[in-house]
Write a protein that binds this DNA or RNA. Structure first.
Length: 419
RNA sequence: GUGCCCGUAGCUCAGCUGGAUAGAGCACCUGGUUGUGGCCCAGGACGUCGCGGGUUCGAAUCCCGUCGGGCACCCCA
């Protein structure tokens, strides 16, 4: 075995494709019903786009980026997208779309790249689908994005999933909250590790990122930001919860949800499943009201989610997607017919039918087996006798019934039977 | 980046405490009709036992190294 796929990548082989197509069809159907339009930004962007938007101390940016140097001197390197929100917003701004409409509801499906140690539900190339509603601060849109994801999950066949929501407040809230954390942390400061005591001085909130076990445990007892958000943010969150109830979406408030990216504000949420093992997040999202303006666009609010296609497919295990059946398989009986079968297949294809033939000179029995393996609707058998009379024998592979018909009628007969 | 587990045919695996030509099921190919599938039957092809080194009369089996994979921590999709 000389060549192997890179660590953390998967080959999606033909037998898996029907499942993926089914998923994409369902997802596109839901997005379409809610009025979300597809966008396809590039697979890679300038590295600085992610540095400035996702947050330069987040895990994603610190250690998970697939970065390639530019070939031109002095130019920024490129990075394969670890997520697509920055790319989508960049595309909306760069192409001047906000001059056309104030609100853009868009969706995407495609591969993302993160340099991580692979495990169940986590690979270096994976696929996400997501939506972004850009141009409004209305809480109803927070609810709508959650409803979209819930609809996709339900329709795809994910039986058990849970929705957890939280609010992170706005930058002002965070300033006030910072004070509360400092106060609480100060009471037991000596129990924290050295670097956390440094964080206490410079940037208290980073204490929540500390990997030291004792610090992590201490941090659990610190106040949650959701309890200290300002009146406006509180009102926004209440409206979101109210909207979720109106929409019939069950949820639980989880004050520990913070999300792994820096741009979130106010609403954040996660959909989890019990069917996945350690990586139990199906998808997550939230509001990011300062990102668009911060990137040079209009000062408008935005909200969206991203979810993992592989994880959703895993959580929907047991769902079958049958492969499409070919309409015909042309079989040559005897050497003389060999030249004719390709021509006949071409005629049937030209008539809009899908089908194949055996390219090797094999026995009729072997060709029938192939027709059966491919689950062809009809075997079209031609030998010397049929050819002499410009006929073909067509056999319905489901009931075994055979008919001899004129070659010219084969396409029509099979086409009608297919309906 | 850290820890645990695993590498035998295309796939799933068996191969006992080291012993002679490394096996099974599925899949594949051929045949059982002079031109016919699914089930069944017969036969066939397919393996540097991940790789390298060591111990031994003898290694798929024991030891070391290495590469690859899986899972978990962390984080998240």
């Amino acid at each position: 075995m000389s060549h192997k796929r890179p660590e953390g990548t998967d080959d999606i082989l033909p037998d898996q494709i029907p499942l993926w197509l089914r998923f994409e069809q369902i997802a596109r159907g839901v997005f379409g019903r809610y009025g979300y339009l597809e966008v396809r930004p590039p697979l890679f962007e300038h590295t600085r786009l992610f540095l400035k938007t996702s947050g330069d101390t987040t895990d994603v940016v610190e250690k998970q980026m697939f970065t390639v140097p530019s070939r031109s001197e002095g130019e920024d390197s490129y990075t394969f997208r670890p997520e697509l929100t920055p790319g989508v917003i960049r595309a909306l701004i760069e192409n001047g779309l906000f001059h056309k409409r104030p609100l853009w509801k868009v969706f995407y499906i495609g591969p993302m790249f993160r340099y991580e140690k692979p495990q169940k539900g986590r690979t270096r190339q994976f696929h996400q689908f997501g939506v972004e509603a850009v141009g409004s601060k209305e809480p109803l849109l927070d609810v709508e994005t959650m409803a979209v994801l819930a609809d996709v999950l339900r329709e795809v066949g994910v039986k058990e999933f849970a929705l957890q929501v939280n609010t992170l407040g706005c930058p002002d809230c965070r300033e006030a909250y910072r004070g509360r954390v400092r106060q609480a942390m100060g009471e037991r400061l000596l129990e924290y590790c050295e670097s956390c005591r440094r964080r206490f001085e410079r940037n208290v909130l980073r204490v929540f990122d500390c990997k030291v076990e004792t610090c992590a445990r201490l941090a659990e007892s610190l106040p949650a930001i959701a309890d200290f958000v300002c009146a406006d943010c509180r009102a926004h969150f209440e409206k979101v919860l109210e909207g979720l109830r109106d929409a019939g979406l069950e949820y639980v408030i989880n004050k520990r949800i913070v999300r792994g990216l820096d741009y979130y504000s106010r609403t954040v949420y996660e959909f989890t499943s019990t069917a996945l093992g350690a990586q139990n997040a199906l998808g997550g999202g939230g509001r990011y009201d300062s990102l668009v303006g911060g990137m040079g666009g209009p000062d408008v609010g935005a909200v969206g989610f991203a979810a993992g296609v592989e994880r959703v497919l895993m959580a929907a295990k047991g769902v079958e997607a049958p492969a499409a059946r070919p309409d015909f398989f042309v079989i040559a009986a005897g050497e003389e017919a060999r030249r004719a079968v390709f021509r006949i297949a071409q005629q049937l294809r030209a008539a809009g039918l899908a089908g194949d033939l055996d390219y090797e000179s094999r026995s009729v029995k072997a060709q029938m087996r192939r027709a059966n393996d491919l689950r062809a609707l009809y075997a079209v058998i031609v030998g010397p006798e049929e050819l002499a009379k410009q006929q073909a024998k067509i056999k319905n592979m489901d009931d075994g019934v055979e008919r001899v018909v004129a070659l010219a009628e084969v396409a029509g007969l099979i086409g009608r039977a297919r309906e």
